[in-house]
């Protein structure tokens, strides 16, 4: 039994050595393939490898990592000139791809989505994969980061100060560009409206439509009221979000209804008002459609937002079929 176990263990070791040797022999081919795949995805389009070669590129990178790990333990690897040359190539390519990636991503941020692809036919976000390939190949090789620290000849040749300083400058530039694109929209409003009032600023932030609507509700609905609001979801991301809406209407209570039904008992929940909300956004979700409420409401009066003074208050019930597909905003006072 012990002999059988020894035999199996020896066989396994032999097999592993053979795999290791194979990985070492064909490592440059695997490395080159992984690099070509990653560059192809960036220059052509993401998914080109899967379409024409029926291989997910992630498997190629996975094979590269496995090959790196196996081949570096091969005894021929340590003395190999090829592995040393490959490491230098990887380091140089890392610098190049890193610079390209950061520069093109920032160029995209400064202009618009797809700008770089439209001008240079390069997908900047996909450049992270060639960068990943060269970095992982370098990092997993025996001559990794600590070689720079320990070998003064390498320090003098590859000038780590240059790499570090350049990286620091690139990261700084990337951050500063990221900050500028982040605040661009806010800054342009602030510079154009230096003396803007709180109302104007809030209106700009939450959209004029929504802010005007909440001001309308505050004017027409007493503070001690309970209001039935649309269900939460597009096209009512703000008017249907009870927590969000409560900020503007507190101490009024708000309660979510359903699309085709009140979803709450008017008497039991002491509901006084129901919103009329077309929807703040064009997009919808959960199969919702514009216009709410989509059910009839027995009303004491209905107050609409309209430019026509004598048509803003209507007596009588709210009948959905009569106002269907009309872009209306207002509030219904329920008959008690």
């Amino acid at each position: 039994m012990q002999n059988i176990q020894k035999y199996n263990k020896t066989n396994l070791l032999v097999l592993l050595k053979q795999v290791r040797s194979l990985c070492y022999s064909i490592f440059p081919l695997i490395w080159a393939s992984a690099l070509l795949v990653s560059i192809g995805e960036a220059l052509l389009y993401p998914g080109v490898t899967k379409k024409y070669l029926l291989i997910n590129p992630l498997w190629v990178y996975f094979i590269l990592i496995a090959a790196c790990l196996f081949s570096k333990y091969d005894p021929k690897y340590k003395k190999s000139v090829l592995s040393e040359k490959l490491n230098k190539i990887n380091l140089s390519l890392a610098f190049l791809f890193g610079l390209l990636y950061l520069s093109l991503m920032n160029l995209e941020k400064l202009n618009y989505s797809n700008f770089v692809f439209s001008k240079l036919h390069v997908h900047p976000a996909e450049l992270k994969w060639p960068l990943f390939v060269v970095l992982i190949s370098y990092a997993l090789s025996r001559r990794g980061f600590h070689t720079i620290v320990n070998n003064k000849n390498i320090i003098k040749k590859i000038r780590p100060e240059m790499i570090i300083i350049t990286l620091a400058l690139m990261v700084s530039a990337d951050n500063l560009i990221g900050i500028s694109s982040m605040i661009e929209k806010d800054i342009s409003f602030m510079l154009s409206n230096p003396l803007a009032s709180y109302d104007l600023k809030m209106s700009e932030k939450v959209t004029p439509l929504f802010y005007e609507y909440t001001s309308f509700i505050k004017t027409n609905v007493p503070e001690e009221s309970t209001i039935l609001i649309p269900p939460q979801g597009y096209p009512w991301p703000q008017t249907g979000n009870s927590a969000y809406l409560r900020y503007f209407l507190y101490p009024r209570k708000v309660l979510n209804g359903e699309e085709y039904l009140p979803g709450a008992n008017y008497t039991k929940n002491d509901i006084d008002y129901v919103l009329i909300a077309w929807g703040e956004t064009i997009g919808t979700e959960y199969d919702y459609t514009h216009g709410w409420p989509k059910f009839d409401v027995a009303a004491e009066e209905i107050i609409y937002i309209t430019n026509e003074k004598d048509k803003d208050k209507v007596m009588g019930n709210y009948v959905y079929e009569a106002v269907k597909d009309k872009e209306l905003w207002g509030v219904i006072k329920i008959t008690k």
Binding site: I187, M190, M202, N241
Partner: peptide, 26 residues
């Protein structure tokens, strides 16, 4: 830049409206 944006913008962000500043109001 951060101070200028914060001093000038006046209005607050979504989660601050829905939660953090709302609770302060309550």
């Amino acid at each position: 830049i951060s101070s200028y944006v914060n001093l000038s913008k006046g209005a607050i962000e979504w989660d601050a409206i829905a939660l953090y500043d709302a609770r302060a109001k309550f």
